[in-house]
Amino acid sequence: MHQTLRDKAIAVCDKKIAQKGPNVGLSFYAFFANRNDDPDMLMEAATWWIKTHRLDHFEKAAKIREMVLAGQ
Protein backbone atom coordinates (compact mmCIF):
# COMPACT_ATOMS: atom_id res chain seq x y z
CA MET A 1 0.00 0.00 0.00
CA HIS A 2 1.42 3.37 -1.02
CA GLN A 3 2.15 5.94 1.67
CA THR A 4 -0.54 8.31 0.39
CA LEU A 5 -3.22 5.67 0.91
CA ARG A 6 -1.75 4.67 4.28
CA ASP A 7 -1.89 8.28 5.47
CA LYS A 8 -5.45 8.67 4.22
CA ALA A 9 -6.59 5.40 5.84
CA ILE A 10 -5.09 6.34 9.20
CA ALA A 11 -6.64 9.82 9.08
CA VAL A 12 -10.08 8.40 8.22
CA CYS A 13 -9.85 5.77 10.96
CA ASP A 14 -8.77 8.39 13.51
CA LYS A 15 -11.65 10.66 12.53
CA LYS A 16 -14.26 7.88 12.66
CA ILE A 17 -12.99 6.64 16.03
CA ALA A 18 -13.04 10.20 17.44
CA GLN A 19 -16.60 10.76 16.16
CA LYS A 20 -18.22 7.43 16.99
CA GLY A 21 -15.96 5.60 19.44
CA PRO A 22 -13.57 2.66 19.32
CA ASN A 23 -16.12 0.13 18.06
CA VAL A 24 -17.06 2.00 14.88
CA GLY A 25 -16.93 -0.05 11.70
CA LEU A 26 -16.06 1.08 8.21
CA SER A 27 -15.39 -0.23 4.74
CA PHE A 28 -12.62 0.78 2.37
CA TYR A 29 -15.13 3.07 0.66
CA ALA A 30 -14.80 5.37 3.70
CA PHE A 31 -11.40 6.40 2.35
CA PHE A 32 -12.98 8.00 -0.72
CA ALA A 33 -15.51 10.65 -1.70
CA ASN A 34 -18.88 9.57 -3.02
CA ARG A 35 -17.59 9.99 -6.55
CA ASN A 36 -14.78 7.93 -7.95
CA ASP A 37 -12.15 10.63 -8.38
CA ASP A 38 -9.11 8.33 -7.97
CA PRO A 39 -9.82 4.89 -9.49
CA ASP A 40 -6.23 3.67 -9.10
CA MET A 41 -6.18 4.37 -5.37
CA LEU A 42 -9.66 2.87 -5.00
CA MET A 43 -8.47 -0.34 -6.66
CA GLU A 44 -5.37 -0.38 -4.48
CA ALA A 45 -7.52 -0.09 -1.34
CA ALA A 46 -9.95 -2.75 -2.59
CA THR A 47 -7.11 -5.14 -3.41
CA TRP A 48 -5.50 -4.62 0.01
CA TRP A 49 -8.84 -5.05 1.80
CA ILE A 50 -10.44 -7.88 -0.17
CA LYS A 51 -7.74 -9.85 -1.95
CA THR A 52 -4.70 -9.43 0.30
CA HIS A 53 -6.34 -9.57 3.74
CA ARG A 54 -9.74 -11.12 2.96
CA LEU A 55 -11.50 -8.71 5.30
CA ASP A 56 -15.26 -8.50 5.72
CA HIS A 57 -17.08 -5.61 4.07
CA PHE A 58 -17.22 -3.76 7.42
CA GLU A 59 -14.35 -3.96 9.90
CA LYS A 60 -13.55 -2.06 13.07
CA ALA A 61 -11.71 1.18 12.31
CA ALA A 62 -9.30 0.44 15.17
CA LYS A 63 -8.36 -2.91 13.57
CA ILE A 64 -7.74 -1.32 10.17
CA ARG A 65 -5.71 1.49 11.76
CA GLU A 66 -3.49 -1.00 13.58
CA MET A 67 -3.00 -3.11 10.44
CA VAL A 68 -1.97 -0.06 8.41
CA LEU A 69 0.36 1.21 11.14
CA ALA A 70 1.95 -2.26 11.35
CA GLY A 71 2.74 -2.10 7.64
CA GLN A 72 0.47 -4.95 6.66
Rank of each mutant, 00 (worst) to 15 (best):
G21M: 03
G21S: 04
G21V: 05
P22R: 11
P22F: 11
P22S: 08
N23T: 09
N23Y: 06
N23R: 07
V24F: 08
G25W: 02
G25Y: 06
G25M: 05
G25N: 07
G25K: 06
G25S: 06
L26M: 10
L26Q: 04
L26A: 03
L26E: 01
S27L: 04
S27E: 05
S27T: 12
F28A: 02
F28S: 01
Y29S: 04
A30S: 12
F32L: 10
F32C: 08
F32K: 04
F32A: 00
F32S: 10
N34Y: 14
R35W: 14
R35T: 09
R35K: 14
N36F: 07
N36M: 10
N36E: 13
D37E: 11
D37C: 05
P39K: 02
P39Q: 01
D40Y: 07
D40V: 08
M41H: 03
M41C: 00
M41E: 12
L42W: 15
L42V: 15
M43I: 02
M43H: 11
M43V: 05
M43Y: 05
E44H: 04
E44I: 04
E44F: 13
E44K: 05
E44T: 03
A45F: 11
A45N: 05
A45W: 07
A45Y: 09
A45E: 04
A46I: 08
A46V: 09
A46L: 08
A46R: 13
A46D: 01
T47P: 08
T47E: 13
T47L: 14
T47V: 14
W48H: 00
W48E: 05
W48C: 02
W48Y: 14
W49G: 04
W49V: 00
W49K: 03
W49L: 00
W49M: 03
I50R: 14
I50V: 12
I50P: 08
K51E: 14
T52S: 15
T52M: 14
T52I: 15
T52P: 13
H53D: 04
R54I: 10
R54D: 10
L55W: 09
L55E: 03
D56R: 13
H57K: 11
H57S: 10
F58D: 09
F58P: 02
E59S: 10
E59L: 09
E59G: 02
K60D: 00
K60W: 06
K60Y: 05
K60I: 00
A61E: 09
A62N: 09
R65D: 04
R65P: 04
